[in-house]
Simulated assay, not measured.
Amino acid sequence: MSILLLSEIFPPRHGGSGRWFYELYRRLEPGTVTIVTQDNADPGDQRVDAEFPQRIHRTAMASPSWGLLSVTGLVFYARTLMRILRLKPSGLSQIHCGRSIPEGFIGLLLARLLRKPLLCYVHGEDIEVARTSRELTWIVNRVLRGADRLICNSQNTKSLLLEHWHVPAKKIEVINPGVDEQTFCPAEPDPAFRKKVGWEDRFVCLTVGRLQRRKGHDKMIEAIPQIKAEIPSILYAIVGQGDNYPNLVAEVHKLGLEEQVQFLDEIEDEDLIRCYQQCDVFILPNRSDGNDIEGFGMVLVEAQAAGKPVIAGNSGGTAETMKIGETGMIVDCTSPGPIAKAVISMRKGMDQGAFEQNTCRQHIVTTLTWDRHRERAKKVFDQVRRTI
């Protein structure tokens, strides 16, 4: 079996879908996958490529326009298609696409030209954002109808395909992204690390992810004063970069919360794992931002694997990452009040022995590891191969 994977997002570029593909395809038989991804001109590209057991080809995969009614979009699709055709991967058995658009449309054209089956990943936010444009809706519809199999990251995403796109259920598989449970694991308290990052004697709520409106950092920041009244040692640590950074910094200054909110935008992978291990609570205060939603929430899985209880918004597929009431809480994160109440309630519960570390950990290692994910994915890939 030889697979061609098209994905603009792939390490060292950060992103949940890129990490998903990195962890899954490196666990397949070496040399059976060719990955076409974005060339970021980053020294990290060479390091990732040298260590990865599959072939990686980096080229221009980004475009300011994904539509077909603009010259920019047409040129992008035509050039990308020609570059991939010139690769001529030997013994190709199937084509995989990291998103329904733009990779899905490129994959659809390739599948038709090469007469190969097409598998497309669907994350939730991709198909929801596409619904805001008639042009993108038309393109995504062609991809969803033309694909032989669709892999969704959550039941919530599957429901979007069924309700809004009328995709036949038999074409859809739900495979939740997993976690490397050997990397994301509990650790003993590390006073030296907590001192290094300024967490001494603080009750630390951690968020990891791109600084986007739907991630809800702003509402958590607005909740800090109410939380501080009950938990004076509160510190909200934010790891990530993104377009919303200036707005978040402005909000912190406006509320005078410089001592309660910390931005860690430049952090090494080893320290990121320690942040998971040494924080007290992990929070992803996500909400729907128009049609932009959180399809699943891999960071919630990583936090629980490290033994930490989690709080997440009631939008998208985040509830599928946890055992509500045992390893985490789901709340309305469209306003600061419910967020503050959830953090305070979780702290009280933890003091009384609830949300125990081993409970969080066991939930993940018994259901959401990458090895379990690989076995489920391989069965789907075999089914796709038999459609030739």
Rank of each mutant, 00 (worst) to 15 (best):
S2M: 05
L4P: 06
L4F: 03
G15M: 09
S17E: 07
R19V: 15
Y25P: 06
T37C: 14
D45T: 07
Q46W: 02
V48F: 05
V48Y: 05
A50S: 15
E51V: 03
P53W: 08
Q54F: 10
I56V: 15
R58P: 09
T59L: 09
A60V: 14
P64E: 06
L74Y: 09
M82E: 10
R83I: 00
I84G: 10
I84C: 02
L92R: 06
I95V: 13
H96R: 12
C97V: 14
C97I: 07
P102N: 08
L110C: 09
R115Y: 04
P117Y: 12
D126Y: 03
E128M: 13
E128P: 00
T132K: 15
R134F: 09
T137E: 07
W138N: 10
W138F: 15
I139C: 05
V143W: 01
G146P: 06
D148T: 05
C152R: 08
S154V: 04
N156E: 08
S159G: 00
E163C: 01
A169C: 07
A169P: 04
K171H: 08
I172Q: 03
E181K: 05
E181R: 12
A187G: 07
E188A: 15
P189K: 03
P191C: 00
K195Q: 14
V197N: 01
R202M: 00
V208D: 02
K215V: 04
H217D: 07
H217K: 08
D218K: 13
M220D: 00
I221E: 04
I227R: 11
I227D: 02
I227M: 08
I231L: 14
I234K: 06
Y236G: 06
G240L: 04
Q241K: 15
L248D: 01
V249I: 09
V249S: 04
V252I: 06
V261Q: 11
Q262A: 06
F263C: 13
F263M: 10
L264I: 15
E266N: 14
E270G: 14
D271C: 06
L272P: 11
C275T: 13
C279D: 08
F282I: 02
I283S: 07
S288V: 12
G290N: 13
E294S: 13
A303K: 04
A305M: 10
A305K: 08
A306Q: 02
I311Y: 01
G313M: 03
G316V: 09
G317L: 08
G317P: 02
M322S: 09
G328A: 03
I339D: 13
A340F: 06
G353Q: 07
A354V: 03
T367D: 10
L368F: 12
K379F: 04
D382E: 15
Q383D: 15
Q383G: 03
I388M: 13
